[in-house]
Design a protein around this nucleic acid. Structure first.
Lengths: 207, 207, 207, 207
DNA sequence: CATGAATGAGACTTCATTCAT
DNA sequence: CATGAATGAAGTCTCATTCAT
C-alpha cells in the first residue's frame, strides 16, 4: 500500500552482525555508551537503526554483546602471553607490550575495555547484563599475583589485591592516556619508560 | 496562575553559584557529562533548571566553569606539595598521597579531573571551551620531570614527555580504579604497594 | 546556539492541564489507549507532545489522571441521583436517564468509562495505576443492590453480585452501542424501551 | 466461504490458515486490534510473521477474514437456535443461553464479536473491509423484533430499532462484563438474574 | 510455502534551552 | 534572580510490510 518499505536485496546475517558489533565497539570506545546512538552504529554498519533489533534486544544488550565478544578475545590472548613468561615482572611487561601492539592495530579494543568499569558504574543496567562475564579482568591480574606469590616472588606481607589493582590501574591508565592523546605512540613510549623504571635504568644512581 | 513565580526571598548569588558548581562537579564526576542533566544539578543545588542560565550560558559552559574551578585548586595544591620535596620520586609520592587524601575527602574532585580527557574527546565542543585552561595537567608533570632532569636525576636519554605521561597515567589509573571500585581505600592500598615498588621492598631479592 | 527553542509567550498552567485532560479523555474514548498518541492529544490541546510531560510522567499516568478526574465526577453524580429515589428500579431508571443526558452533552465521559475495564485488561500497566481508584464502579452498583435487599425489595435467594453485574453490564452495553452507532439518540430510545420492559408495557398481554 | 472456486488448497496450507485465523481471533479478542502484532499471531500459529502474507494481504485484511469466519458461524447458530422458539422472550433467552455456552467453550468468539463495533470505530480502515459483511449482527436482532411484531407480541407503538438495539446491547454488555472479570461464570449468573427479571421472580411483589 | 533480514514510519520519552511573569 | 511552562530536536524502540533466498 505504501511505497518503498520492506527488505532490500541480499543480506548476509553473520556478516551484518559482525559489522554491527565492530561499529558498536568503535563508537562505544570513542564516544561512550550514552553518546553512541543506534543511528551512528547503523550508519557505520550500513543498515538502518531499527535493523539492530534483529540482532540484539536493546542498546544495553548490544553493549553486553560487544563486551563478551571483546573481553574473551583480549584476556585469552593475555593469558597466553603471560603463560610464556616465568616472573611477574616479565609477564606484566609482555602484557603491556601486547596491549601496545593491539592499541596500534585497533584502538577500539583497549579503548572499549578500559572504559567498561566507568560505564557500568554510570549505567547500572549495564552492570546486570555484564555480571556473568564480569570479573575476567580482575581475575587475570589476581591470577598473575597469586602465581607470583606461590613462586615466592613477593614479599610475604604484600596486600595482593592492592598489587593486582595497581597492575590493572597502570595498564588502564596508560591505555587511556594514549587514547586521550589520540596517539598510540605515546603509549609505547610511556611503556618503555616504565620498563626502565623496573630495570633500574631510569634514575641516575645518585638519586 | 499561582503567583508563585519569580524570584523568592534573599539572593546570595555567590552562594547559589557555589552550590551549582559543586552539584555539577559531583554529577559530572559520577554520571559523566552526557548523563548529567541540568535538572539533576538544579535539584541538588536547590533551584530550578532554568535558573542555571543566570550563572552560565550553557551546559558546556558550566562544565568549563567547573573545570576552571577545580583544576586550579588541584594543581595549585599539587605544586605546593611538590615544592616541599627535593627529588622526583619524593614529589610524586607526596602528590599521590595528597591525591589519596583528597579522594577520601571529596571523590568528586579527582573523579572529575581524571574524566576530563575522555569527556573532551567525546564532546568536542567541550574541548574548545577548555582549551584556554587545558595543559595545566600536562604542564604540572612536565614541570616535575624537567626539574628532575635539571637536577640530574634522570638518565640523559630519557623521553621526558613519555615519563610525564607515565606519571600522569599512573595517578589517573589509580584514581579511576578506586572510583570504579567505589572504595577509596583501594587507592590507598595500591599507592602503598606502588611505594614499595619504588623503594624496592616489594619483590623478594631473588626475584 | 540553536534557533527557535524555548518557551513562547503566555501559559496558563491550570488551563493547559485541563485542555490536556479533556483532549486525552476524548481521544481515549474515541480511539482507545493504544491508538491515542501523545501527538494527537498535544495537537488538540494546542501544545507540543513533549509538554505533556510537565503534567504527567507518562502516557499511562495520563490515563490514570483522566480516570481519576472522570470517575469521581461520574459516580458522585450517580450517587446523588440515586439517593433521591426510593426503589432500585427507580434509582436505576434515574441513573440511566442521567447517563443519557451526559452522553448527549459529552460522549467522552461515558465513552471513556465504559472502556476502562477493557483497557485495563489489555494494558496491565494501567491496572496497577488505577488500582487505588478501581472498584468505584462495582461499588456503586453493589451498593444499590445491597440497599434494595435491605429494604426487602429483592427475592431473598437472589445472587446479589450477579444482579449488580447485570445492572452495570446493561448500562455499559447501551452506552457502547450508542457510541458505536455514533448517535446518542439510539441510547435514549433504547432506554425508553427498557423502561417499558420494566413497567410491563412493552409486551402485549397475551405474550 | 466453503464453496471455494478453483483448485482447493492442499491440506497443510488450509490447516496453517486455520491456525492463523484462530491465533488472530484469540489475540484480537484479548489484546485488541492495535496491540495484536503479526509477530504474536505468527508465533502462536507456529510460523513467522512474513508467512502471514501468503494468506492475507494485510493485517486489516486478516481482521476481516477473522470477522467473516466468526460472524457467520455465530449468527447462523443464533438463527438456528431462535428458529426453535416461538416468542421473542424465549428466543432471546435461548440466544443468551447459547452465547453463555460458547463463552465457556471459547471466549475468543464472543470476545472478538463484541469488540468489533469498537474496533471499526477506532480503525476506520477496518470499517471499509467489513462493510460487505456488516449488518449481520443488527439484522439478526432486527429480524427477531420484526417477527415478534408480526406475531403481535409487541405493543404497536414500540420503536423497533430501539428494541433491537436494546437486545443487542444487553447481550454485548454481559459478554464484555464477563470478559473483563475474566470469569465466564459471571455471565451465566447475570443471565440467570436477567431471566428472573423477565419472568417476574426477581422483585418481591410489594416492590 | 516459508524464512528471516531489512526498511521506514512513527511511537513514547528525555532534555537543553528560552522566556513571560 | 528565579520559576515553571513550553519547545524542538533527538534518542530508543516497535511494527507492518517487503523480498531475496
Amino acid at each position: 500500500m505504501s511505497g518503498r518499505v520492506g527488505r532490500p536485496r541480499d543480506g548476509d546475517s553473520a556478516e551484518t552482525r559482525r559489522r554491527i558489533l565492530d561499529a558498536a565497539r568503535a563508537s562505544f570506545a570513542k564516544d561512550g555508551y550514552r553518546a553512541t546512538t543506534n543511528r551512528k552504529i547503523a550508519d557505520e554498519a550500513g543498515i538502518t537503526s531499527g535493523a539492530i533489533y534483529h540482532y540484539v534486544e536493546s542498546k544495553a544488550e548490544l553493549y553486553a554483546a560487544v563486551y563478551c565478544d571483546t573481553i574473551d578475545a583480549l584476556y585469552t590472548e593475555f593469558e597466553r602471553i603471560a603463560a610464556a613468561e616465568s616472573t611477574l615482572l616479565r609477564q606484566y611487561s609482555a602484557v603491556l607490550q601486547r596491549a601496545c601492539e593491539l592499541q596500534m592495530h585497533d584502538p577500539s579494543i583497549t579503548g572499549f575495555i578500559v572504559a567498561v568499569a566507568q560505564e557500568t558504574q554510570r549505567h547500572p543496567d549495564l552492570l546486570e547484563r555484564l555480571a556473568p562475564q564480569r570479573g575476567r579482568h580482575a581475575r587475570f591480574f589476581s591470577g598473575l599475583v597469586a602465581d607470583a606469590a606461590d613462586r615466592g616472588e613477593l614479599a610475604p606481607d604484600i596486600d595482593r589485591r592492592a598489587l593486582a589493582d595497581l597492575l590493572g590501574a597502570v595498564l588502564t591508565g596508560l591505555a587511556r592516556m594514549a587514547a586521550a592523546a589520540g596517539d598510540p605512540q605515546r603509549y609505547t613510549a610511556a611503556v618503555e619508560v616504565l620498563e626502565r623504571f623496573l630495570d633500574g635504568s631510569l634514575l641516575t644512581p645518585s638519586a
